[in-house]
Design a protein around this nucleic acid. Structure first.
Length: 670
DNA sequence: AGTAAAAGGTTTTTT
DNA sequence: ACCTTTTACT
């Protein structure tokens, strides 16, 4: 196993005795090294149950542990504890939560749940009414989360990140107080709570027990951990715990989640005597690709120690293609993907990367038109669709009848039930007092329903009582609740049939779980990241193209990478133009995107793009090439013009000119 | 008074 | 596609 490793990697695998920080540049065999290290630890006789591997996604953990199991002689290698910080927090809190005064039957709120709850509090307290401008609920939730996960004071967060909200500090304070009170009363935890309670556990009476659980702790993607997570790591370590963190400061792209590379910089301060090993030989990309990536990084004001080098000096220059508009870009990329496949590069070996989830909208249309199958990662998830949330709310009530948020969502699905009826029912069913009896009260028929909702509420009662009985699998419960959905969906959604089909899919997913609670928790902590509309006939499915946000592409690699929408305003996103910290993160995103490529990299840039996301009108602006790419254009090969097919010639150019003139004109008065 | 339907405006990235 | 606001209906 050691033979395939270079000297630095071998040192990182073999190192014992002090905490270890591995600074590993993109494509330097970080995963391979981590896997080998776990295998070496097991080889030295460690009990797999006493090894903890914290990763950024659960998929990463599963993959690594699978690879360990493949090389380690110990049959129990699969028993290594692995997962995200949040998933681990969940496991530990179910076991030890009582000592922290926590009901172990808690429900986990995902992002939109907590935002909704924040919105409920916001309106209940009368903020945002009567014309007074008040931050939107998303903003309120954002302020809260940033404050908590960076452990900063409200005033500081407002000053640095939300200066336009400073006037509302007092109102925000009371909203946060009420939000926290409701979470506790509803027996729900949000993402931030999971980490906070875990940290709390390590400082409490069970702290020693927790620290005795693991002799070896390994953490991947350490540059993307936040201060609370750093506290947890410290809280889980005994003086003799074997700790190993791996990260790359040049790939820190989760600042918006309060992650900070400070955790890497201060590693030696927090863990005295720590050793640092740097990996800088890249095994992934050709030298021309690395030259571009290094040049991008070189534009940063921050100082990065590593310059990646590779023995793969062969290879072609990356390509930079300028397109007239998004349509041209989509057609070009689709063609380029097929061309590459002709040259023997499977769809599996290719990816299209972009900054924001909706950047692939146009391309997806084109791929569908040409029957090119693809899976999309990142962006809006199927779990966040309103109707899926509806069904999950039904399950959550069954799982935790104190869940006020779920109750309100479900009751307002009933016909004839609006805010007023909701308030009355909330009182009569005890929902506002967050009691577990609400469910039995509802099933017993407490609470008068508007006549229009009679049939629906009867259906809901019987479905609930059926599912609450026990002895029914989660999948059957979903199936049973679908009857209720079919009664209420037509009034709420334009395409009820398609939505109901999604419910069937949910039932299929639920079939993998024996417990409703587990199903719900797993779904919020590890949502299916893939929203795979697969174009083309099903039998072609075995080879598909990957579309992914840059964030979701972290840690992955492809032979050919197509980066699209490389325009200023997209990358860097115009939301980040304000400050250097944000810009630095955008620059690292470009770096991450480029270093995903092994053999071929193409950067695409449409000259015009729609002002409005949902292109209802035809207003365009002219874009500049991304400021991170413009200065290093010389490192790219730039074809004279994109291929133009016959059906594109007829008129498109003229329309483009007309638009151009119109835009110029309207810019005079807009 | 209270609900439903229609219109208008917005949307970075994610555990 | 979704949330909010406005308007129309009962």
């Amino acid at each position: 196993m050691f033979d395939e490793l270079n000297p630095q990697q071998q040192a990182a695998v073999a190192h014992t005795g002090t905490p270890l920080l591995i600074v590993a540049g993109a494509g330097t065999g970080k995963t391979r090294t981590l896997v080998a290290r776990v295998a070496r630890i097991l080889d030295d006789g460690a009990d797999p149950n006493r090894v903890l591997l914290l990763t950024f996604t659960r998929r990463a953990a599963a993959e690594m542990i699978g690879r360990v199991a493949a090389v380690a002689p110990d049959r129990r290698a699969g028993q290594v504890w692995g997962g995200t910080f949040h998933a681990m927090a969940n496991r530990l809190l179910r076991t030890f939560g009582r000592s922290a005064g926590l009901s172990t039957g808690f429900t986990v709120l995902d992002n939109s749940d907590s935002t909704d709850l924040m919105g409920m509090v916001r309106t209940a307290n009368g903020f945002g009414e009567s014309g007074r401008r008040f931050p939107r609920k998303e903003t309120v939730a954002g302020i809260y989360s940033r404050m908590v996960s960076s452990q900063a004071r409200l005033g500081d967060v407002l000053d640095t990140d939300y200066p336009w909200c400073t006037d509302h500090a007092d109102d925000l304070r009371s909203i946060f107080t009420e939000y926290t009170r409701r979470k506790r009363a509803n027996k729900v935890l949000d993402y931030d709570d999971l980490l906070l309670f875990w940290r709390g556990l390590t400082a409490g009476p069970v702290g020693d027990e927790l620290r005795r659980m693991f002799d070896h702790i390994l953490i991947d993607e350490y540059q993307d951990t936040n201060p609370v997570q750093a506290n947890i790591v410290r809280g889980m370590c005994r003086p003799d715990t074997d700790l190993c963190a791996v990260g790359d400061d040049a790939q820190a792209i989760y600042g918006f989640r309060a992650a900070t590379v400070e955790n890497m910089w201060s590693f030696a301060d927090h863990f005295p005597g720590a050793t640092t090993i740097t990996l800088d030989q890249n095994y992934r990309s050709t030298m021309p690709i690395l030259a571009v990536a290094n040049a991008v990084l070189g534009q940063s004001g921050d100082h990065y120690e590593k310059v990646l080098w590779s023995t793969r000096s062969d290879g072609v220059k990356p390509t930079l293609v300028t397109h007239n508009d998004e349509g041209d870009q989509s057609r070009y990329v689709a063609t380029a993907v097929l061309d590459a496949r002709e040259r023997g590069i499977d769809l599996h070996d290719q990816a299209v990367l972009f900054r924001a989830g909706h950047h692939s909208d146009g391309l997806e249309l084109e791929l569908t038109r040409r029957d090119i199958p693809y899976h999309k990662y990142g962006g809006l998830k199927y779990l966040e669709a309103a109707h899926v949330k509806d069904l999950l709310a039904l399950l959550r009530i069954l799982d935790n009848p104190a869940d006020q948020l779920a109750w309100y969502r479900v009751l307002s699905m009933l016909e004839g039930v609006g805010p007023a009826t909701l308030r009355r029912l909330g009182d009569e069913l005890g929902i506002d007092r967050q009691v577990d009896e609400s469910l039995s009260l509802f099933i017993d028929g407490v609470g008068a329903m508007p006549p229009a909702a009679n049939r629906q509420s009867r259906e809901l009662r019987t479905a609930f009582s059926h599912c609450a009985d026990g002895g029914i699998s989660p999948s059957e419960q979903v199936d049973r609740l679908k009857g209720f959905c079919s009664m209420v969906f037509p009034a709420h959604y334009h395409n009820p049939a398609a939505r109901l089909a999604d419910i069937d899919q949910l039932a299929a997913t639920a079939a993998n779980y024996s417990s409703r609670g587990r199903f719900l928790t797993e779904l919020t902590l590890d949502p299916p990241s893939k929203t795979g509309e697969r174009a083309g006939p099903p039998h072609l499915d075995d080879d598909w193209l990957t579309l992914s946000t840059i964030h979701s592409a972290k840690g992955l690699e492809w032979r050919t990478v197509h980066l699209i929408h490389a325009a200023d305003g997209n990358i860097p996103s115009e939301m980040s133009l304000g400050d250097d910290i944000g810009l630095g993160e955008e620059l690292r995103l470009v770096y991450v995107a480029m270093t995903r490529a092994k053999d071929e990299l193409t950067v695409n840039f449409p000259l015009r793009f729609h002002v409005n996301r949902r292109a209802l009108d035809d207003r365009h602006v002219f874009a500049q090439l991304s400021r991170f790419v413009e200065p290093i254009r010389g490192l790219f090969h730039e074809p004279a013009a994109g291929p133009v097919t016959d059906d594109e010639i007829g008129g498109l150019a003229d329309v483009g000119l007309a638009d151009e003139v119109d835009t110029t004109l309207s810019s005079l008065w807009d």
